[in-house]
Amino acid sequence: MPFFSSSHKRNPAITLELDDVRFGKLLKSLRATMETVAMARTDVCVAQVASSLTPMSQDWDRRSFRLAVLARFLSRSPVPPEWARMDPDNATALVLHAWSTLFRARATGNAEGVSKVRKDCLHAADLAPQDPTPWIVLLELGRLERHDPGDVFQVWNEVVLRDRWNREAYLSMTRYLTPDEGGSRLQVLEFVDSLRARVPANAPCVVTELTSQVLHYQSIQARGGVEGLMARNFWTDIHVSATLDRAAQHWPQPSFFSHAATLADLNTLAYALMAANRRRDAFPVFQAIGGVVTHWPWQFEGDPVTVFKHMQARAKSAK
């Protein structure tokens, strides 16, 4: 994983593409095109996206990552619906349109177009039966519409049947099971416990357990009062501390991870270590991250880049 390269030794900034240089060039090109006033800019963006995502990649991990980022990035633009309209039998176009619709609905509260998501995803699944991404989007639909757990787990099983350790699916399922989305802390713990013994230590989805812990820590903080003030004690729990120990020992090593969202997972680890006041352990993690900042989990504390810089400086002072 090239996250120690000089390209990441820069001032901290939100970097959607993480260390995916080729994908970063696409995002930069899309930004430039969308800033123009030319009438044909939507068609140009469609062509840029289509040429970058087709033919369909069999690297499901990177494909899921790129589609998720693009769906959020283009969620308020006409590009996804226009590509789907122009090429209605293109599985990638259908998935991008469906996913961007869900991102927009979650961000704005406007459910316009959501009713068509299921149909588009099932059509995409028929067109590309080996591709897990239509099922990932259906999983996101289940979260948004609070479908019954049995139905949601059935969709999740369709994803892991095609890509056993798919990061997007595991994290989506974790959030679905939280109290914030109608589940419970016990359901989250049971889900994580069922994975702990069988997920490889360097699998794309290995951040699931730590993510569930950060989500719980933030939920305690959000309650405020005495409970919020005591949230830091959460990290002293023997099982939580053991999770941090394992991650801090292995994750920052350059050869340990190879999945697309490695730098996002290292952001999660750096945040957790700083929340636990383990600044010495956090320092090598910040070194591995360089200047690549993710919105989550830093945004819980304020402006992500500002919080990241502050925590990075604190970790450096303790090395």
Results as ranks from 00 to 15, higher is better:
127 L>H: 08
94 L>H: 05
101 T>V: 12
66 R>Q: 14
122 L>A: 01
221 Q>I: 12
17 E>P: 04
169 A>N: 01
184 S>M: 06
158 E>V: 01
287 Q>N: 15
148 D>A: 15
34 M>W: 07
145 E>A: 14
68 A>K: 10
58 Q>S: 15
111 A>C: 08
132 P>D: 09
183 G>S: 14
35 E>L: 13
53 L>M: 15
132 P>F: 07
306 T>L: 11
84 A>F: 04
21 V>Q: 13
132 P>Q: 08
161 L>S: 13
45 C>R: 03
66 R>L: 02
252 P>Q: 10
315 A>F: 06
143 R>L: 14
176 Y>Q: 05
88 P>H: 07
190 E>K: 03
164 R>I: 06
258 S>L: 12
172 S>D: 07
190 E>N: 05
87 D>C: 10
219 S>R: 12
10 R>A: 12
58 Q>Y: 11
215 L>I: 07
98 A>E: 03
180 D>W: 07
244 L>T: 02
62 R>H: 13
69 V>E: 11
81 P>G: 01
251 W>S: 00
201 A>I: 13
204 P>T: 08
155 V>P: 01
211 T>P: 01
262 T>V: 12
125 A>L: 03
80 P>D: 08
32 A>R: 12
177 L>W: 03
210 L>P: 04
64 S>V: 05
62 R>F: 12
29 S>I: 03
36 T>E: 14
42 T>D: 10
156 W>C: 08
113 G>W: 06
39 M>Y: 10
121 C>V: 11
30 L>P: 02
59 D>C: 07
159 V>C: 07
293 V>I: 10
233 N>D: 09
32 A>Y: 11
126 D>V: 14
55 P>S: 09
113 G>L: 11
217 Y>K: 09
199 V>E: 04
226 V>D: 13
251 W>D: 05
20 D>L: 05
282 A>G: 06
155 V>G: 05
70 L>N: 02
109 G>R: 04
205 C>L: 08
172 S>C: 14
219 S>H: 15
154 Q>D: 15
30 L>T: 01
266 L>Y: 02
146 R>L: 14
61 D>R: 04
311 M>W: 14
10 R>G: 05
189 L>Q: 08
204 P>W: 05
234 F>A: 03
220 I>T: 08
215 L>C: 07
61 D>G: 15
127 L>E: 08
295 H>Y: 11
154 Q>R: 15
